[in-house]
Design a protein around this nucleic acid. Structure first.
Length: 640
DNA sequence: ACTAAAGGGGCTTACC
DNA sequence: GGTAAGCCACTTTAGT
């Protein structure tokens, strides 16, 4: 009888984790490295072009292995995701020092094309939507979620309508019920990453429960979807997927917006593509978006793209946008000031999301503080005409009766000063913190007395080392004697070879370099212990205080998000005004009816693509539903 | 400018 | 029997 050769405990642990997500590549944290074994090793070697090696695996014989240090995850993870892989990240869950056995490990995140908070995977001015789809007969429900910004939308309607939404949102990943692959392939024109989930997820009850629990509410009326069973199921399936991919801290997803069929012109994917709204079909071309995008902020950029893909249908909201654009057009001083301030505003939406998922960096926190201050500056500039950024102390006189200004005021008044958040961050975090939170200098002095004491201890220890250096230099007569630090020996005394003979007997030689020798002494090691001990405590204390602040900020997420949306709108409107000035665009008169009249019209993209010096020949167009229903345009089809 | 070692777990091998 | 030393991906850093 032959016994099946046993894997070693580590490899067994790997395949245990692997069995939870068999369709994902598993990156397994072992010490400083993320490792993959067996088939996964072969896969990542192929995608990442790294070396294949092997790991001994007891009686079962060596197993394929590949890996990279944990700090390189940001480089490699996006490559795997872009190659269409689902990647399960498995981390160590306990301190290896506290156990003699194999360290406990667990999957902390499943990264997929549609679920990513990693900025190396995300495009700044583009959303990263995950879509959930549910079809029944001729109708379908759909939900779109961008976990990196917290935006969550849903809709229900004919298959044709939902297919158009898929075209406009262009999600990076599509979820649907297992077994419906053929049906979905036949009815929808989606080509990206897809994932099938169990049928029990697609029941009204399971979805409703999930939505109510997530939003902590008693009914779905507040979202206006109580009579949209397919939309409810689609939305619920998306939330289930968050759970499944270990994204459990998602309090930034705090509302579900119903996409209203009646408000927007529906564009299908062919129209979007052939009009080259966002992307061009040929090399070196320009999309309409790239020609008109003068937004300064990331969220403005994302909103402009959405405005372009969801053209308004109703006259009133169009006019309101036009009024505000015209106001900016007529106020170059204010516009310039605001544009400048906008340029200094960070990605509020994505910072808010990072706070929620617990991955905000110290530098992002300071950026948040500065950005919220900038929001308030814009508020004051628009409401009171204060343009300190441009000319300190000067105040513009704005026409209070201007319809555009009134609309702008209504928008800006909703911005929140967020003084609380700004003060909290300011009180706790230093002005120029490091990106990462590992070795100190993040928390401001005076925040915590224990921290201050430890810092004193550490710095006085260092001062004492300098005193030792001076004393020993005098005692031995070695003037070039230096005390310094490295990770191998800690603190040591370095002596140039020229003075080798003057070294006292009690010094312990540790290392010989080409033209110097390194020694330690009893005294040095004693102080080293004090200093390193203090530094270790400083690091853990700082981390604790930092986490407290980060958790505390979670209660303000919706205020930050509200500001982000208002800034995005303002940014888009200002971008329109900027483009209008630059390209000499005119404000079209929009009214009910079906006539279209263009006088001396120019195609925005073609005009930009002309070689320098070549004039654009503008042309007139008139179309309506009674007299001039058809016109024939000859030549290259570039009339727009 | 170039090279070698460290980084940290787990496993094997060598040695007492 | 236990313990110490060697190994291993990639990147960074220290040392030539």
């Amino acid at each position: 009888m032959t016994k099946k050769p046993e894997d070693t405990p580590l490899i067994r642990q790997y395949f245990e984790m692997k069995s939870k997500h068999p369709d994902a590549v598993l990156l397994f944290r072992v010490g400083d490295f993320y490792e993959a074994y067996g088939q996964d090793a072969l896969t990542i070697v192929d995608i990442l072009s790294i070396a294949l090696t092997k790991k001994s695996n007891g009686a079962a014989g060596p197993i394929e292995m590949a890996g990279f240090p944990h700090h390189a995850l940001d480089n490699f993870l996006p490559k795997l995701v872009r190659a269409g892989k689902r990647v399960a990240i498995c981390d160590q869950l306990e301190d290896p020092k506290l156990t003699k056995k194999l360290v406990k490990r667990g999957i902390t995140e499943l990264v997929t094309p549609g679920v990513s908070t990693n900025e190396h995977i995300l495009a700044t001015k583009e959303n990263n939507f995950l879509a959930g789809l549910h079809v029944e007969k001729n109708r379908a429900g759909v939900a779109f979620l961008d976990i990196s910004t917290g935006e969550f939308y849903t809709a229900e309607g004919t298959v044709e309508f939902v297919d158009k939404l898929l075209g406009s949102f262009s999600p990076k990943e599509l979820l649907y019920e297992r077994g419906k692959r053929a049906l979905i392939q036949e009815r929808f024109h989606y080509t990206g990453a897809r994932y099938e989930m169990d049928d029990w997820v697609y029941t009204d009850e399971s979805a409703t429960t999930r939505l109510l629990k997530h939003f902590q509410t008693n009914h779905l009326k507040g979202f206006g979807i109580q009579n949209m069973p397919l939309a409810i199921i689609a939305s619920g399936s998306v939330l289930y997927y968050m759970d499944m991919t270990e994204h459990t801290q998602i309090s930034h997803i705090n509302t579900l917006s119903r996409l209203d069929e009646t408000q927007y012109v529906r564009l299908d994917r062919y129209t979007i593509r052939s009009l080259e709204l966002c992307e061009t079909m040929n090399e070196g071309g320009k999309s309409l978006l790239s020609v008109i995008d003068r937004t300064q902020s990331a969220m403005g950029g994302r909103l402009l793209r959405r405005w372009l893909l969801f053209p308004l249908k109703q006259v009133e909201p169009i006019r309101e946008r036009q009024d505000m654009t015209e106001f900016f057009f007529k106020q170059p001083l204010l516009s310039t000031a605001i544009r400048q301030i906008l340029g200094g505003i960070g990605d509020l939406e994505r910072i808010a999301s990072k706070i929620a998922v617990g991955r905000v960096s110290p530098r992002e926190m300071v950026y948040l503080k500065q950005s919220l201050k900038a929001v308030n500056d814009i508020r004051l500039a628009c409401l009171e005409g204060k343009i300190d950024e441009l000319e300190p102390g000067s105040v513009l006189s704005l026409d209070a009766d201007d319809v555009g200004y009134m609309a702008l005021q209504r928008l800006v008044e909703r911005m929140q000063p967020c003084t609380d958040i700004r003060q909290r961050i300011h009180r706790v975090i230093v002005d120029n913190p490091p990106i990462a939170l590992n070795r100190g200098e993040v928390i401001r002095a005076g925040v915590d007395s224990e921290l201050d004491e430890l810092r004193m201890l550490s710095s006085s220890g260092k001062e004492y080392l300098m005193a030792i250096q001076e004393r020993e230099a005098q005692r031995t007569g070695i003037s070039s004697l230096r005390i310094s630090f490295n990770n191998v020996f800690g603190y040591y005394i370095e002596v140039r070879n020229a003075h080798k003979d003057k070294v006292p007997d009690e010094w312990i030689r540790k290392q010989t370099l080409v033209n110097a020798e390194r020694f330690i002494t009893q005294e040095l090691k004693e102080y080293e212990e004090k200093i390193l001990g203090a530094e270790e405590k400083i690091a853990s204390l700082e981390a604790r205080i930092y986490q407290e602040l980060a958790t505390d900020l979670c209660q303000y997420l919706s205020a930050i998000q509200a500001n982000a949306l208002l800034i995005a709108q303002l940014d888009c409107l200002l971008s329109f005004a900027t483009t209008a000035v630059e390209h000499r665009y005119y404000r079209p008169i929009v009214q009910e009816g079906d006539a279209l009249t263009i006088k001396a019209g120019r195609h925005p993209v073609i005009e930009k693509m002309l070689p320098p010096g070549e004039p654009y020949i503008a042309n007139d167009i008139h179309l309506d539903s009674t007299q001039d229903q058809i016109i024939i345009i000859t030549g290259p089809n570039m009339a727009g």
